[in-house]
Simulated scan of single mutants.
Amino acid sequence: MAHNVRPSGYSKFAKKQTYTRRMGTKKNRAQMLLSERGGGLSLLILVILVLPLFLANNYHYDVVVNIGINAIVVVGLNLLIGHAGQISLGHAGFFGLGAYVSAVLTARYGVHGLVALPVGALGVGILAYAIARPVLRLSGHYLAMATLGVGLIIHIVISREAWLTGGPDGMYVPPLEVMGVAVYGGPVWYWIVAGALILAVWLSLNVIDSPVGRALRGLNGSEVAAQAAGVDTTRYKVMVFVLSAVMAAVAGSLAAHFSEFVSPTKASFLQSILFVTMVVLGGMASTFGAVLGAVMLTLLPQVLADFADYEQVILGLIMMAVMIALPKGLVPTLTALVKRWVRRAGS
């Protein structure tokens, strides 16, 4: 034990015990509950399990299902914008493509919905990979304009190819079938979308806590420094771009089968802006911030429906007030406040 005794007269084991006593297990448990992996995912699952008790009719289920679909998109988009620092103004294009691939394959060619969904995700992933290689060499507003162009091209193609997509009028989508039974009704779709959302959040949290996530954070901080540290920045940018596009495509397929109708508005520029705003409002680099942003911006228009003439004005004012008061977004700011309160309570 002599070699473990320090010149100050105590061992490193005693120092470790003193540090443990000083920090306290209560505080460590509180920090774990405030973490995304510790408490965040558990809280999300709890909310999903309890929420149906408060849903009184099909309208409520429709709103909640749309919240879940939007949340799946922005959880993936948050990996790209919040963690990798790569802006995309064209993700509604991937969302619309996922919806239309499922619609066309099932309605025009009789493909089973459970086959059309992964085929759409795979096709969008291949397209995103082909786009990402040249586009992600850009940065800043150049990258934003390039991704905007991609989204606009997808929207134009969907609108113009009426023989296949129905054009501006949209097209009917057959209901999803599971084991020969058509899936109808808000309660059933609630659990389908809830399961997909939990899977998307779990996947996002695992990516963030993996070496890929650390590489993305380094890339976001300084691409030059990340390259100097040996990070293959191009590879990781392409990887997260493709992953976020595939998640958007899956959400689009779910949206198409849920509503049993698709139109080019799903791939519109305004839809892309809405997705980005959800990420920023909830808090960039926060997975559950993205979910909360989807909740707010899907729910607020429903709440403000009685103010039809001033709905957009009120919505804009609310967003401005939130961003001024909470510039880092809702979840990061509120989490920082709670952690500060916990530190003060434990001291």
Rank of each mutant, 00 (worst) to 15 (best):
A196I: 14
K27I: 07
H112T: 08
S159A: 10
F307P: 06
V101E: 03
V47G: 04
W189M: 04
A132H: 00
G252N: 06
S244Q: 10
L46A: 12
F241Q: 00
R343P: 06
P175L: 05
A116Y: 07
N4V: 13
V224E: 15
V262Q: 03
V295L: 09
Y142K: 05
V262H: 05
S244G: 08
A321R: 05
L199G: 09
W191H: 03
S268Y: 00
Y129C: 09
R137H: 05
Y59M: 04
P175V: 10
I273P: 02
M278H: 14
K328I: 12
V280R: 01
V303Y: 08
L205C: 09
V183D: 01
G218W: 02
I67N: 05
V276T: 09
P327R: 13
L33F: 14
V280S: 03
G218P: 00
S347F: 11
L152S: 11
A325C: 07
P168H: 01
T233S: 13
L219Y: 06
Q86D: 03
F95R: 00
V313F: 04
I69Q: 00
F261C: 11
L299T: 10
R344P: 05
G24P: 00
A121E: 03
L274N: 11
D62C: 01
R160S: 08
R137S: 06
L114S: 07
F288L: 01
I273W: 15
R343L: 13
A84N: 10
V212I: 13
K266S: 06
A130M: 15
A144T: 10
V342N: 03
T234W: 06
S159Y: 08
G39Y: 06
G68T: 06
A84E: 05
Y100E: 04
L337C: 11
L148T: 11
F241A: 07
G113Y: 04
E36L: 07
P327N: 11
L219H: 02
A229R: 14
Y100Q: 10
V188I: 13
L53Q: 06
P134D: 03
V173L: 09
N206P: 06
G282H: 03
L176A: 05
F95D: 00
G213Q: 12
K26G: 15
R344N: 12
A182H: 10
G329P: 00
L337R: 14
L114Q: 09
V240I: 14
T106V: 02
L114G: 01
V183L: 13
G289Q: 04
L43V: 12
M320Y: 08
G289N: 03
R343F: 13
I156F: 09
A84H: 14
T18K: 15
Y10G: 11
G9E: 08
G346R: 15
L55T: 01
V295W: 03
K27A: 10
Q302L: 04
I154R: 02
H257A: 00
V73E: 04
V201Q: 04
V338Q: 07
V47D: 03
Y59G: 05
I158A: 00
S253K: 00
E177Y: 10
L122P: 00
V331Y: 01
I208P: 02
G346V: 15
S286V: 10
A248K: 05
G113R: 02
A225I: 15
M319A: 08
M284T: 14
L326E: 06
P174R: 01
T265H: 12
D309A: 09
V188A: 13
T20F: 14
A256H: 05
S244W: 10
Y100D: 07
L337P: 08
L330D: 09
T298K: 05
L79K: 14
